[in-house]
Design a protein around this nucleic acid. Structure first.
Length: 476
RNA sequence: CGGGACGUAGCGCAGCCUGGUAGCGCGCCUCGUUCGGGACGAGGAGGUCGGAGGUUCAAAUCCUCUCGUCCCGACCA
């Protein structure tokens, strides 16, 4: 390897620096002038578009429709739900001047849209016949963050927020869990990230929610990432915003609401879960380019190789694979190999004079590095099959990693040692009190990531009191 | 928001201590030779030294403030 390749620090040596370098070298994002603002560059945005499309299809399939709500939220709206303001107050950015006039009431740039959406919903909902309301919004939000990193924590970020309204508590709860499942499927099937799902502890709940459910992924450095959340809001917001409807019995009652969100943070998760020392690795389902053809030519046969590469490109593209052909004449094949590996392209197709002679091409998998010679006629079919295989293998690799890094702690000593030494997920009983949760956090910096749905009883490692199993980790 | 480090060409850095005409590597542009794991030669372009104020005949260099970045902690998708 040459020194240029070694410019990317090893993931295992300095994960933090590796991440920042990779984001810039792979042209995913670039820093903005204001703290926490970033430009998502075309390659990064294409990944987001793929994820977005996958999720959006799933939302539509479960009966949701998209809409758009205002960016600016009057202060008085935010204040209506007490817990909600308190939760977001430290992170708000305010608009106080419009044109040249000082505003009578300052306007918050949305950190999330519950409050302003509820204000609309109050007017839109009169009767049980208006329910359920199943609306999703794709937008940007702003939270004044102190410590930021591209994708993982940015002041402004892109996301999707679903806001639904239901006649009964039961329906709202079902919706909350349904959307958690939708996220889970997207992570597993599209992003090849094996997330764990479960409920949050009360202290980690969304401000204003009755219950928060989460998808938690385990990153390559053993830290957990909250990747998407789904909230059962109960009647909290309906009461605060005075949303009511007449039910079948002619009684005026408050409806039940949910909200759920998934953000560009997941791109950070994708990088951390799948990336390696050579750079990014993208699952085929969301890779903007699924296979790249690198022609290898010599002076005398350049024209021929070039023509063959172009023909192969057209042929494979027509068979439905997202192809790219790298006809750049300034760089050597070796340079291109490294470049496309850095970008995480799932398969490289090498085509040189020897291959043309033999009527074949060389396929190299990004996930395993395996090299294979394939006859020209079988190429399209082979590639198509490879996409599925790579997708599956990447999920399997991530799953294996997660399993190897999920440990049961039998004593508090052991718990502390695991967090200090290996990190990863630690499974241990919790007595349900905030005191023990807080103590563990102070001692180890690990927090409860989730309470699994499968209830398991046990004795709390700190207090000795009876409790249920929780999953702990140090989080991003 | 605390503790530490750092802002000099697109990227990585030297110069600062001891003030005196801004440098190196990579990248970029042109031409030629190359091309199966980051090719080579020759020419060339590019910086109000993060910003503001101060000290000085003179500031990248000294002082003050400010903005930003990174690492380690407290809060969050």
């Amino acid at each position: 390897m040459t020194e240029a390749v070694e410019k990317l620090v090893k993931k295992s040596e300095d994960p933090s620096r590796w991440y920042l370098q990779l984001v810039r070298m792979a042209k995913l994002a670039d820093y903005g002038p204001v703290r926490g603002t970033f430009a998502i560059r075309p390659y990064g945005f294409e990944i987001w578009e793929r994820v977005q499309r996958d999720l959006d299809d799933r939302f539509k399939a479960t009966g949701h429709r998209n809409a758009y709500f205002p960016l600016l939220i009057p202060e008085s709206y935010l204040k209506k739900e007490a817990e909600h303001v308190e939760g977001f107050d430290p992170e708000l950015a305010w608009v106080t001047i419009g044109g040249r006039e000082e505003l009578e009431e300052r306007l918050a740039i949305r950190p999330t849209s519950e409050s302003i959406i509820c204000d609309f919903y109050r007017n839109w909902i009169q009767s049980y016949r208006d329910l359920p309301i199943l609306i999703n919004q794709w937008c940007n939000v702003l939270r004044w963050e102190k410590v930021t990193r591209p994708f993982l924590r940015t002041s402004e970020f892109l996301w999707q927020e679903g806001h639904t309204v239901h006649a009964t508590a039961q329906e709202a709860r079902e919706e909350t869990l349904r959307m958690l499942g939708v996220y889970r499927d997207c992570f597993y099937e599209a992003m090849a990230i094996p997330v764990l799902t479960g409920a949050k502890s009360p202290s980690e709940r969304f401000a204003g929610a009755v219950e928060t459910y989460t998808c938690e992924g385990l990153m390559g450095d053993g830290r957990a990432l909250q990747a998407a959340t789904s909230h059962d809001l109960g009647q909290n917001f309906a009461r605060a915003f005075d949303i009511t409807f007449l039910d079948e019995n002619q009684d005026r009652v408050h409806p039940y609401q949910t909200s759920w969100g998934f953000s560009t943070r997941t791109i950070g998760g994708l990088i951390l879960v799948h990336g390696d020392d050579r750079g990014l690795r993208l699952p085929p389902r969301i890779a903007p380019t699924q296979a790249v053809i690198v022609p290898i030519w010599r002076g005398k046969n350049k024209g021929e190789v070039r023509r063959e590469a172009e023909a192969l490109y057209t042929e494979l593209k027509d068979s439905g694979i997202r192809m790219e052909v790298d006809l750049d004449e300034e760089h050597s094949p070796g340079w291109k190999f490294n470049e496309h590996e850095l970008r995480g392209v799932p398969v490289r197709v090498e085509l040189g004079p020897r291959d043309i002679e033999k009527g074949q091409a060389v396929l190299v998998r990004r996930d395993t590095g395996e090299k294979e010679f394939v006859g020209r006629k079988e190429l399209a079919e082979k590639l198509e099959g490879l996409m599925g295989e790579i997708q599956e293998n990447m999920l399997r690799q991530a799953e294996t990693f997660r399993e190897e890094n999920t440990r049961r702690a039998e004593s508090y000593e052991e718990f502390k040692e695991i967090i200090a030494r290996e990190r990863g997920f630690v499974v241990a009983p919790w007595d349900g009190t905030e005191e023990t949760e807080q103590k563990i956090k102070e001692d180890t910096r690990a927090t409860i990531r989730l309470l699994p749905f499968e209830r398991e009883e046990g004795k709390d490692l700190v207090s000795g009191r009876p409790g249920r199993t929780a999953i702990f980790a140090r989080a991003y």
